[in-house]
Nucleic acid binder design. Structure first.
Length: 110
DNA sequence: AACTTGACGGTCA
DNA sequence: ATGACCGCCAAGT
């Protein structure tokens, strides 16, 4: 039996090292691209209710843009969290995105 | 039961 | 380089 797509997303996100970030597409690809990146976003949307310790703030879109900052309760909560981990953010965009990018298919996957 | 929206991404114009 | 469209699947209305 396969775990729920969402559950797999949670595991991957929880495996993201501190000070690192990844993209929805990267996670989707790691899980097999079968489901589109949107499902990853939906999965994370559930996490805020799942009470899991999901560092969703470490997941951004492929632009390095904090698309879901509004879902963290505050306006800049996500940005502050990322900045606390060493991310350089300007105008909701991660400047050193490529430097801090963490690809599960590259780091976890063989 | 049907339509619309949604934390995206890639390709085409 | 910028803008627009399509794909993908699930949940909400």
């Amino acid at each position: 039996m396969e775990k729920d797509f969402f559950q797999q997303v949670y595991e991957v996100v929880k495996l993201i090292p501190p000070g690192r970030i990844t993209s929805y597409g990267a996670i989707a690809r790691y899980l097999g691209t079968a489901r589109s990146s949107r499902m990853v976003g939906w999965a994370l949307n559930q996490t805020k209710s799942q009470a899991y310790s999901i560092p969703a703030h470490r997941v951004v879109n492929r632009n390095g843009l904090l698309t879901g900052k509004h879902f963290f309760g505050g306006e800049d909560t996500m940005q502050e969290l990322l900045e606390s981990e060493g991310m350089i953010i300007e105008d909701n965009q991660i400047i050193n995105f490529k430097e801090r990018f963490w690809d599960p298919t590259k780091e976890l996957s063989l």
